[in-house]
Design a protein around this nucleic acid. Structure first.
Length: 990
RNA sequence: GCGCAAGUGGCGGAACUGGCAGACGCGCCAGGUUUAGGUCCUGGUGCCUUCGGGUGUGCGGGUUCGAGUCCCGCCUUGCGCACCA
């Protein structure tokens, strides 16, 4: 029998923790009152005069492997912050649900032959147990799951809202600009009334159109469209993917399978309509600059101009005069298809350099190539331009085939070496009438701009490289500064040169002015116009998989798509016998997507009354499912009102929790209207352009349609670092089980007797370095684990896991416990004597520092201060005063809530401390009575003296100059004395 | 290649506007408790040192009475972008 039965061991910690978790659940301690909706509790809301706070973690995916010690890092951090704010009197909403649709669950289910619903629900149960054991103060009523029909009913509802909307670029929005989503019904009304002209100006009105014609007009405007487009087809996953889901290496971010470009008809969400607002509104949220930059880069907005280069008559490869350009937009050719073509439209960000455009380049996929190519090489064609082919058609075809066969990886492997062939065609530079040869080259991409460029070698490095490789002329139109290398392009600012025709001259102008002038000239001439392009593509939204939300869309016999009426939602995911997607050889680029739902003929054919007055009819269901991002695009809204059967969220609940704040975030532009949104959103940076961009898009649509008062989902986003763990590899570079590796005294590592090398990496199966929180609960308890993770270092940093070091946090809690409870008797040890002055000052300085640290998420330094304070109390010889230990318990509570609750209760408090007031520092006690003043000679510390904290500069200087060491060091007198009372005096000898 | 972060003891990391570098924790060392090991407790712990002191925040310069902190030039690591016209 131990003689310390009341010691704070892992066993005791465990029993305390589980008991408090039960109590919290029974009492509903963390249930946050809502102002409205089915749980309306206005009284509960009014009990929180210090306002409200919405703190959220990124939506977790319940993986089959359970949690590892890296996962809870952010959950603990938000919990500490939430608990702290609760103690400040705020109404705090913190909860967590499950993002449970998606590929991994489906793949796991296929592997194990079980239904994905079964495996997903099992995984959720495991995760829920692990999370509960952590002691997170979540509102347990709000643990929503995306796979529940009551949830995805609203996912489908939102889809229909977007489907039934169009983007009106001219409509004023509420942030002072124009452009917002409007219901498609309003567009119909404008067409019907004639307020908006119909696209086809054939004299017929809306009522005269067939329903197929009307559908075509509307479908072209919807924010969800079915388009025939080049998509990312991933045979290994059997589905198409969004651009955001394809890695730089041209592989799927899930599973790392090859991805191929295919032309297929697919659903897209028109996120590009929001490109400007998505870019601009980043200024109004408080996010890491890094993440904002990533989103801006992804959106890739660039300002420039579209310029049309008329096609020139085929002929000799020599430059002719300016007459043709003046003649008009089309080069004089007899070829019918060419005359139908106005010319080659390019996008350029440097219209000021137009006079230096000496050739053009089309992407290999450019449609104009077919009509551009003449029968024979024009006279004067250089050998190097032909690619060795007998005719331009052969050369272009060979080049196109070669480019098409190359994967992105191969293109990348070739680096920046420029290849291409002459098309045999010419175009006319609209500013000077120069005949410029047109090339095809794969350094121009079909997916950006117009898929064609004007090449200005003197001011563009890529064009320079191409021009030198193919001996094309280079004309400088921006004067490089003196000393600029004559053999490179100059891309900087400078005065324009060689840039004048009979009507306009740019010579001498800087880049910005030159752009302005030439764009004005182009617009006047109808040869071009100012333009903005984006790298952002529309969001490919359909997946040919099973485990996702079905599309609430049906088609009639004409192939027209209809949204399923709201009152018939949800469209439930049918329980099909064969849910495996049709997957192919990952390299089989020519395979076709085949959704599992398409196999269920009974489900696909449906009789339905759309409520359009035509009665019940037979329709064909859409057999796609939504991507995993769908459920995670709006879950934070459902948290606010998860039981609401009438709306996705009651508007009053949304505006209470997420509505715009009175003052904008720091760094927002002057006069900004606050966008509202989640007050603190914590999660990994890997979702910087996926989830965070998609959610912003949906949120803005819902805001435009009047469903939300906030116009950004996440007002403040904090990107947490990762916990990494040691992993070890053997001599074949294969990871070995990290838990079985032994460290030798010389610092080397061995596994089963063989030497292994160490690295630090992501925790997980692939590196065999899994550490489960369950092991930590068993060995130390949840409070120790929480404290360890928070004490490791700054939250935004990635840090290595070290199980051996966890004991330090346990020791702290043991000392705290021992300051209150006698380990042998279990009796209370605190004394009721008043605090001595020194202890009171340490206490209040700690309160002040911890408050600041908690507010700024500086948990590691807060913990250090609390340890110092507790160590100071431990050393008091007259016992630990209650007046000191109670504030310590309250301050520890957000970090280690179970032990704090237990000590609080043992100290005689009947109420949970979850809503107790956080200690407040007395300003009078923040200043130290005496401080150590450092005396420096020429900046080097030479002496120290104890002085009163409020000593004047003059007194301190006098004191310092009398010190023997100072006198000794200044035999020739003193030149300067710098005094920073009360901490420092620096004496500079003469 | 371009852009952005970050480099501090054996390790994770502290250090407000330039003002005692290394808080706190791990590890290590010594002592105590214990039958022993472990736990736990107390003290010490940047490096060098002739014990006076010297030296020290990736490297080299600079500004300053004073630099981890500011400026210039490098190096390394991490992240992002990568023919985006």
């Amino acid at each position: 029998m131990s003689d310390t039965p009341y010691r704070y061991t892992a066993e005791l910690a465990g029993s305390i923790e589980v008991a408090w978790q039960d109590r919290w659940e029974e009492r509903g301690t963390f249930r946050a009152p809502n102002p409205a909706g089915p749980w309306a509790d206005p009284e509960g809301v009014s009990e929180h005069p210090n306002g409200h706070l919405l703190v959220l973690d990124m939506f977790p995916y319940p993986s089959g492997a359970g949690l590892h010690v890296g996962h809870p890092l952010g959950y603990i951090a938000t919990d500490v912050y939430a608990r702290f704010n609760r103690m400040l009197g705020r109404n705090v909403l913190h909860c967590l649900g499950y993002d449970a649709f998606g590929l991994p669950a489906e793949q796991y289910a296929v592997q194990t032959g079980q239904h994905p619903r079964k495996t997903t629900e099992e995984n959720i149960a495991i995760m829920a147990r692990q999370l509960r054991r952590l002691g997170l103060g979540h509102d347990d009523r709000r643990a929503i799951r995306t796979i529940d029909p009551d949830y995805y009913r609203w996912t489908q509802w939102i889809f229909l809202q977007i489907f039934n909307s169009w983007y009106d670029h001219d409509a004023p929005n509420d942030v002072g600009g124009t452009g917002r989503a409007r219901p498609i019904a309003e567009l119909v009304e404008e067409y019907r009334s004639g307020a908006r002209p119909l696209p086809a100006d054939d004299g017929r009105g809306w009522e005269d159109l067939s329903h197929v014609e009307r559908a075509e007009i509307l479908d072209a405007r919807r924010l969800v469209q079915s388009v025939e487009a080049q998509v990312n087809w991933c045979p290994g996953l059997g589905t198409v993917l969004a651009n955001e889901e394809v890695t730089n290496e041209g592989r799927s971010d899930r599973g790392n399978f090859p991805v191929f470009k295919r032309n297929l008809r697919q659903w897209v969400m028109r996120i590009t309509e929001y490109a400007d607002r998505l870019a601009d509104d980043l200024d109004r949220v408080e996010w890491p600059e890094k993440v904002k930059t990533m989103q801006r880069n992804w959106i890739g907005r660039s300002q420039g101009a579209h310029v049309t280069f008329p096609l020139a008559a085929s002929g000799t490869a020599t430059t002719t005069g300016a007459t043709e350009a003046a003649a008009g937009s089309v080069g004089a050719t007899s070829d019918a298809s060419a005359s139908a073509t106005p010319g080659i439209e390019v996008f350029t960000t440097r219209p000021d350099t137009l006079f230096g455009a000496t050739f053009m380049v089309l992407a290999p996929e450019h449609p104009l190539l077919a009509t551009l190519v003449p029968d024979a090489w024009p006279e004067g064609t250089r050998d190097a331009w032909t690619g060795g082919a007998a005719t331009p058609a052969d050369a272009v075809e060979a080049y196109r085939a070669a480019a098409a066969a190359k994967t992105d990886v191969e293109r990348q492997a070739e680096g920046k070496a420029k290849t291409g062939v002459f098309t045999g065609g010419f175009a006319v530079n609209p500013v000077n009438g120069a005949r410029v040869p047109v090339f095809v080259a794969d350094y121009v991409l079909m997916g950006y701009g117009t898929g064609a460029i004007m090449a200005v070698p003197a001011q563009d490095e890529r064009d320079w490289d191409f021009a030198t490789a193919y001996e094309l002329p280079i004309v400088r139109t921006v004067q490089p500064p003196a000393g600029h290398d004559e053999d490179t392009a100059y891309t900087g600012d400078g005065p324009a040169v060689n840039s004048a025709n009979d009507e306009v001259s740019l010579d001498g102008l800087g880049v910005a002015e030159a752009k302005e002038r030439i764009v004005a000239w182009l617009e006047e001439r109808g040869a071009g116009r100012g333009a903005v392009t984006y790298k952002l593509r529309d969001w490919l939204f359909a997946r040919q998989r099973y485990w996702g939300e079905p599309f609430p869309v049906v088609f009639d016999e004409d192939g027209i798509a209809y949204g399923v009426p709201e009152d018939q939602l949800p469209v439930e995911l049918p329980d099909v016998p064969d849910y495996s997607p049709k997957v192919y050889d990952p390299e089989d680029a020519d395979s076709e997507p085949e959704p599992p739902l398409a196999r269920d003929a009974d489900w696909v054919a449906v009789e339905m009354d759309l409520g359009d007055g035509r009665g019940p009819r037979t329709f064909r269901r859409d057999t796609n499912v939504m991507p995993q991002w769908a459920g995670s695009c709006w879950y934070y809204l459902r948290y606010l009102d998860p039981a609401n059967a009438e709306a996705m969220v009651d508007p009053d609940n949304e505006s209470y929790w997420m509505g715009p704040r009175d003052t904008p975030v720091g760094g927002a532009p002057e006069g900004t209207r606050d966008p509202g949104g989640v007050d603190l959103y914590v999660g990994g940076v890997e979702h910087a352009v996926l989830h965070l961009l998609y959610a912003r898009f949906w949120h803005k649509v819902l805001h435009d349609l009047g469903h939300l008062s906030s116009d950004e989902p996440f007002r403040t986003y904090f990107a947490q670092g990762y916990i990494q763990a040691a992993a070890y590899r053997d001599d074949r570079d294969q990871p070995v089980e990290a838990s079985e590796v032994e460290e030798g005294p010389d610092g080397t590592f061995t596994w089963q007797g063989q030497p292994v090398t160490r690295e630090f990496g992501k925790i997980g199966k692939s590196l065999k370095n899994m550490v489960s929180p369950d092991d930590m609960y068993a060995a130390y308890g949840a409070d120790t684990f929480r404290l360890y993770e928070m004490g490791l270092g700054p939250l935004e940093q990635s840090k290595p896991w070290d199980t051996r070091a966890v004991v330090g946090s346990q020791r702290f809690l043991q000392r705290l416990w021992r300051n209150v409870v006698d380990e042998e008797t279990g009796e209370l040890r605190v004394v009721d004597t008043p605090l001595d002055d020194a202890t009171a000052r340490v206490l209040h300085r700690t309160v002040d520092a911890v408050r600041t640290d908690f507010t700024e998420l500086g948990f590691n330094t807060a913990i250090a201060r609390l340890i110092e304070l507790n160590n100071a109390l431990t050393k008091l010889e007259t016992g630990v005063p209650r007046a000191a230990v109670e504030p310590v318990v309250l301050m520890v509570a957000p970090l280690a809530p179970h032990i704090a609750e237990e000590l609080w209760a043992r100290l005689g408090h009947a109420e949970s401390l979850a809503h107790a007031a956080f200690p407040v520092a007395d300003p009078a006690l923040l200043v130290e009575e005496t401080v150590t003043c450092v005396i420096q000679i020429r900046g080097k510390v030479r002496d120290r003296i104890e002085v009163p904290g409020d000593i004047t500069e003059d007194d301190l200087e006098e004191l310092a100059l009398m010190r023997p060491k100072v006198l000794e060091a200044t035999p020739d007198g003193v030149r300067t004395v710098i005094v920073r009372a009360p901490r420092l005096v620096n004496v500079v000898p003469a």
